[in-house]
Amino acid sequence: MSDEATPAAGVPPTPDRDGHFAARIAEGVKLYGEGETAVRALDGVSMTFPAGQFTAIMGPSGSGKSTLMQCMAGLDRLTGGHTWLGETEITALDEKRLTQVRRDKVGFVFQAYNLVPTLTVEENITLPLDIAGRKVDRSWFDQVVDAVRMRDRLHHRPSELSGGQQQRAAAARALVARPEIVFADEPTGALDSRSGAELLAFLRRAVDEFGQTVVIVTHDPNAASHADRVLFLNDGHIVDEMEAPTAERVLDRMKTLGAQ
């Protein structure tokens, strides 16, 4: 695919099976720096994340994939364009509302340092609910905790967990508030392959069994192969899209991206 293949401005986003969007971005532009030295991290990106889908965003380093995720998750602001989380346009929200949106509509899993070291695993998992002052739905909590197999670790501190356990706890935290969408930024980046596979299997289950929307940013073709759909990003553009990916096909596509 060539650079001209960027989806045109104003193209209506494709609806999902039920016609719902978990998240959407239109004409997203993100500039870093100013004037001559400005870097266009996102260069007019438009796309949708249908509800109940597992999407992977891939691309070489500096392609803008993390920036895309951060802007869509309300961690960062677009320089131009619009983003929505569910029905809410978050582009112009003030800091306070944005924080609320993150708290209520988004779950996060980062590459590392996902847990607050002073809190127990259980407290970490319920943290978003506690921050919001919402009640914990115990049966849902139990379901999630069992799904990530953390039941016997609930009263441990993060420092007593392995890396894989920490990431699974983070995933549980991301799900427990029933967010519209879970964003995971290189969730397996710091894990060995077995732990990584476990985590991805859990995220897959979250989509299949709980109907959760999950978006992961990764450069690992194996990780991407767990997704329903893979988006390829390069130089701030979406350059390709792949349904029902396999690790081999993704790897091939990445090779050609890298060659460009």
Binding site: L75, K96, T99, Q100, R102, R103, D104, F108, F110, Y113, N114, L115, V116, L127, P128, I131, A132, R173
Partner: peptide
Amino acid sequence: LLRAVGLG
């Protein structure tokens, strides 16, 4: 992290 998960 706390800010990301919703701490105002």
